[in-house]
Simulated assay, not measured.
Amino acid sequence: MIRLVLADDQVLLRQGLRMILEAADDMDVVGEADDGAGAVALAVEQGPDVILMDVRMPEVDGLEATSRIRALMPDGPRILILTTFDLDEYVYASLRAGASGFLLKDTLTADLLSGIRAVARGDAIVAPQVTRRLIERHIGSAGDPLPRSESDLRELTEREREVLGLVARGLSNAEIAGRLFLAEGTVKGHVSRILAKLDLRDRVQAVILAYECGLVRPG
């Protein structure tokens, strides 16, 4: 069973999510919080596998809550940000704080469930069209220097750099395999080595690093 905590200040949204999630045979909601402080407390008390975290909440928002949970529990629950995107300006910062990805609040039920399962098994959820817009907003804007340089990628082979660039553009392993004429298992191996060499937790951090280093550019 995937044990979940819901953190959102909208009661109706939490109720709707609980109904959807508990209808799945492999999911169990073990707690609800209406702000970030409550989410942190439940993370410590319940030790869930995944926390569905809203960004904008009173007192302690999702960004701060994510940062606190990662500090208290580095190997603790995976955090999946739920956002309305156009209103939430802190999603990119949340990913840097340690979230494993994000989904839009109007995502289809099947995509939500598959996303939670992916995050629970250690993968990351990166919505390509949203990633591009967030990166454009937060990285490499005029007069804003990139925090990393391409030299940070020096340990990667040419093939690994090519794979990382495609990961940063939001392609799945299967799509990368088709693009590069490789077996999907080979691509998975490349991704694993990239994460290990760069000391990254998941694909989300890989996307961020690729943009920060200038391997791929916004737009």
Rank of each mutant, 00 (worst) to 15 (best):
V204K: 10
V187M: 11
E175R: 08
D9R: 00
L42P: 05
G178L: 14
L104I: 13
P128K: 01
G38A: 07
E22F: 03
A110R: 13
R148E: 07
V60E: 09
T107R: 09
M53G: 09
G31C: 03
L80V: 10
D8G: 08
S149I: 01
L180Q: 11
L134S: 05
Q129I: 08
R133F: 03
D88K: 06
D34C: 15
L113M: 02
L164R: 00
V29R: 00
G38S: 10
L4Q: 03
F181E: 08
A118G: 12
L215S: 08
Q205G: 01
D61Q: 12
L80H: 07
Y92K: 03
G185H: 01
G38E: 07
S100A: 15
R137A: 15
L156R: 04
E45W: 06
I176V: 09
L87F: 07
D34E: 15
V167H: 05
R159F: 08
R159D: 13
E64K: 14
V30K: 06
R159K: 13
A196D: 13
A23R: 11
V191G: 00
L112F: 03
T83W: 04
V191F: 03
D54V: 00
L17P: 11
I176C: 05
F102K: 00
G219K: 09
L112P: 10
S141I: 11
G143N: 03
A196Q: 10
D144C: 10
L113W: 01
L180R: 13
R117S: 07
V126K: 10
I79D: 10
V187N: 08
I2L: 04
V191A: 00
V60S: 14
R18P: 14
A97V: 08
D28Y: 10
G62Y: 03
D54I: 00
L215W: 04
K197T: 04
L80M: 09
V119L: 14
D202L: 00
V40P: 05
G140T: 03
P58R: 02
I139C: 13
L182S: 06
S149R: 03
